[in-house]
Amino acid sequence: MKQLIELKVNGEVYEVAIESHRTLLEVLRESLGFVGTKRGCDEGTCGACTVLVNGKPILSCLMLATDAIGAEIETIEGQAITGKPSPLQKAFVDYGAIQCGFCSPGMILSAKALLRENPKPTEREIKEAISGNLCRCTGYIKIVEAIKVAAESNV
């Protein structure tokens, strides 16, 4: 049995018919086409599927889509303003924080949530904030640096 729900993603409301056991990740990717949200494990262990729900980073593979009804959902697609990268995205690009890029959407959203709460984080706080986001390519150093730079440039 499908259920018609409304989800608010990046400020726009979408109506979508889903089975109640669908995760937010599935609905974002498969029903709404927000494929920038990545699936690295589908079991809550890699962080690639991180999106913001009411400003908090959550693992969308662990959240039922129905639990996000009425919430503000932010995905990577909503970060660039009219195609222009956000300062955080720009710092990721400029400081070499992106290699294969599969972790990047989740990393950027985790970083965004951090900077919103704590605009001047210490290096330790940055590392803690992204410790649930695995990256197999970069060794995290350039990611931490990019977040630091974005924080300094006052996002």
């Binding site: 990577i76 995205q89 690009v93």
Partner: peptide, 21 residues
Amino acid sequence: KRLPRIDAHGKALGQMQYIED
């Protein structure tokens, strides 16, 4: 030179197509 990669913007914006996309 320390130049950004040519695909970095697309990746930062979530626009690149990986197989599952």
